[in-house]
């Protein structure tokens, strides 16, 4: 199954292909909002291959992040890997 972690939009550049800048430390740093024109700054989105495919409400984003954290699957940016 395709795992997807929510990331937050911090800025949007309007245009024919609106682009969003995502929360610092996120990979990727930007994504295209063509598939989710309703997305706004502050929303969480699921990104695949540079395109936001889904907008999550805050509660859903929190549930998703909690599930990943419960499995120990989220590594904070800059945190050492266990293998290091």
């Amino acid at each position: 199954m395709c795992v997807a972690v929510p990331t937050r939009i911090v800025a949007i550049e309007a245009g024919p292909l609106p682009m969003a800048r995502l929360e610092p430390g996120t990979v990727p740093a930007t994504c295209c909002l063509a598939y989710v024109p309703e997305a706004q700054v502050g929303d969480y989105v699921l990104v695949q291959h540079g395109f936001a495919i889904e907008v999550l409400d805050a509660e859903s984003a929190a549930l998703s992040l909690a599930a990943f954290a419960e499995l120990g699957a989220i590594r904070a940016p800059g945190a050492p890997d266990d293998a290091d």
């Binding site: 990727p28 695949q48 291959h49 499995l71 120990g72 989220i74």
Partner: peptide, 14 residues
Amino acid sequence: MTVRLIIDQAVDGA
């Protein structure tokens, strides 16, 4: 055994 998912790769897959 601990299973670690590399989420960076999942967020913007290869």
